[in-house]
Design a protein around this nucleic acid. Structure first.
Length: 572
RNA sequence: GCGGCUGUAGCUCAGCGGAUUAGAGCAUCGGUCUACGGAACCGAGGGUCGGGGGUUCGAAUCCCUCCAGCCGCACCA
């Protein structure tokens, strides 16, 4: 099947082509009619003709006659109102379609999606929230669209801090250290190591030689390192399970994975003539980047001390993603502060010929999470906020609210529901604002259950679901004729037909918030309908029509929320 | 200084492939309740879209400039 939007667009394209081939109808939703096409004015300008006259000609061709009535308005807008039969047909089609009209892509891509990326032996904190949540939503949307997603959790598992971490591990004793990790108290572990490193010269020396041992492959040192890495990854796994994201341990490909490839990166850059020594460091100077003094800005691949910079690792990873994983698209869900670094990495990769033009390579930039003071979110004591603490606080609030509401669930069931609501609150708040913008983290608002929030959407879904619970018999999509006599049901129907373009636009812009906006709008349409159109007390064909609309609403909300990584419980 | 991002209603934000009256949520005020979950619905007030200039028949949207703020700008990743 073809989605309603696509059908309309195709018809309009035919109508426009008949006047001038290739003109863009600029079809979009309208608040004056069902849809509007704004392309006439641009076309008329191109042709040097009067817009309304061109509009007449386009409409006169009759290409839209069996789908919509068209009114020419203002300077030359086409206001389209869908015909009842067309609406009925489209609704019938999505009723029988598990994908609700969203067609899988013809040419699946291999999408390498880099997201989350916490650091070994460090607590996951708010700084990882957005990458994890946005990345996961994109993964789900891409997969649903039919693409192959290869998730890459590029964890920081290498570097000089591991000297002190391993020494601290030895000081504590492995067992105690592991216990610390499994309790999720990574901050303490890291901080203790740091304090000793700063205060204790002997410890500092041990740490430094431990780094050397690590880098030269000393087996015992590697074993200890492995302990740290494995414990961390298993801890991350617990956090991912808690926040309900699709990342699995197999997606973890840490920085250490690329160690063997770093020499090759340097060599190949050198033989390509791109490598320049500057102040003792091996650098590439991609054109167009400047430092404070207006001089060319280097991407440092090898530091003065011979160590590799993270640029080298990123380049090695990028190469592997192209040549070994055969990615068609490389996406990096990484915060805005790293934009320049990644731009430089991409630029160098293009210069070196490692990144073919046809491979899309892009940073999925996101803004910061701010506190109520509009500064980077910190705990009251001024420390970074642990991700699990954030989740727990949200769960607690949701739990209390359920209690106040006199939820008939108790014990584990209530806790489970509170968790679903809390995650919806946090994820939706994160996903529903424009990705690149900073947003203010306000738990009160997010869990408030009113307005444009995750819980509101869940509530709308729970209300539809309750209708089917009360129905007392299983309901299957059946052959109903959609009359849509009331404006509320017609508005709902139009909303139900809108998923495909919303999802497409969300995907092509890598902006989950467009899907959020759609779902919120749909939920509002539903609650208006729910208020105006009794379902169970209706009779005959009208009752079937309303049940069918409810069924579609429930399925659309479930699917849409699912693509955002949000559960849609049947009862709240 | 250079680069990037931001400035839209009291608050939090959409809209920015130009276009018919600038939208939503929260808050405020006023309605709706013997119907399927009131965590709801309906409605009202509230904005010189940071300032200024320009392009256009038409600009929140494109261009220039100024102001304010945030981020990045050589060896921590």
């Amino acid at each position: 099947m073809s989605s309603t939007y696509e059908s309309l667009r195709e018809r309009l394209q035919e109508a426009f082509d008949a006047v001038a081939p290739g003109a863009d109808p600029a079809l979009r939703l309208s608040d004056r009619s069902d849809y509007q096409a704004n392309g006439v004015m641009a076309l008329a300008k191109r042709l040097g003709r009067a817009p309304r006259q061109v509009a007449q000609e386009i409409v006169g061709g009759g290409h839209l006659a069996d789908v919509a009535t068209v009114e020419i308005a203002g300077p030359g807008f086409l206001n389209l109102t869908l015909l009842p039969e067309f609406l009925n047909h489209q609704l019938g089609a999505i009723s029988l379609d598990a994908r609700l009209g969203f067609v899988e892509v013809n040419h699946p891509l291999r999408v390498i999606l880099d997201y989350s990326s916490p650091n070994v032996a460090k607590e996951m904190h708010v700084g990882h929230l957005r990458s994890t949540v946005i990345g996961d939503a994109l993964a789900r949307m891409y997969r649903f669209a039919g693409h192959t997603v290869i998730a890459r959790n590029h964890v920081g598992d290498w570097g000089t801090p591991f000297g002190m971490l391993i020494e601290h591990l030895l000081d504590l004793g492995e067992e105690l250290a592991i216990a610390t990790f499994s309790m999720g108290d990574l901050n303490t572990f890291y901080k203790e190591a740091r304090v000793k490193f700063d205060a204790d010269d002997a410890f500092k020396d041990r740490s430094r030689s431990r780094v050397v041992a690590l880098q030269s492959g000393d087996p015992e040192t590697l074993r200890l390192w492995r302990v740290l890495v494995d414990e961390s990854i298993s801890y991350f796994g617990e956090v991912y399970a808690k926040i309900d994201v699709t990342l699995v341990p197999g997606d973890v490909v840490g920085e250490s994975h690329y160690n063997e490839l770093l020499e090759g990166v340097i060599d190949d850059l050198a033989s390509a003539g791109l490598l320049v020594e500057s102040e003792g460091a091996q650098c590439v100077f991609p054109p167009g980047f400047q430092n404070r003094e207006g001089e060319p800005l280097p991407l440092i691949v090898r530091k003065r001390d011979e160590g590799f910079g993270y640029a080298a690792t990123d380049l090695a990873a990028l190469r592997e993603r192209v040549s070994v994983l055969h990615g068609d698209e490389l996406l990096y869900v990484v915060g805005a502060p790293q934009a320049q670094h990644l731009e430089m990495v991409f630029a160098v990769a293009r210069l070196a010929g490692w990144l073919p033009d046809e491979v899309r390579c892009e940073q999925v930039i996101f803004g910061n999470v701010l506190g109520p003071d509009h500064k980077m979110l910190k705990s009251r004591s001024g420390e970074t906020v642990k991700l699990v603490d954030l989740l727990d606080e949200a769960i607690e609030r949701a739990y209390v609210i359920l209690e106040e509401r006199g939820s008939d669930l108790d014990g584990d069931a209530r806790l489970h529901l509170a968790t679903q609501i809390a995650l919806a609150a946090i994820k939706y708040a994160d996903l529903s604002s424009e990705r690149q913008h900073d947003y203010v983290f306000d738990l009160e608002r997010m869990v408030a259950f009113e307005g444009d929030t995750g819980p509101y959407l869940q509530y709308a879904h729970a209300r539809v679901s309750s209708i089917f619970r009360r129905l007392g018999e299983p309901w299957q999509p059946r052959d109903v004729h959609f009359e849509l006599a009331e404006s509320a049901s017609r508005e709902l129907a139009l909303g139900l037909l809108g998923l495909p373009p919303a999802l497409s636009s969300s995907l092509s812009s890598l902006q989950p918030h467009r899907l959020c906006t759609y779902l919120f709008d749909l939920a509002q349409r539903f609650t208006s309908f729910y208020d105006a159109c009794p379902v169970l007390s209706a009779e005959g064909a009208l009752r079937d029509e309303r049940l069918a609309l409810c069924d579609l609403t429930a399925r659309t909300l479930r699917l849409g929320l699912g693509l955002l990584g949000i559960d849609a419980p049947d009862q709240m």
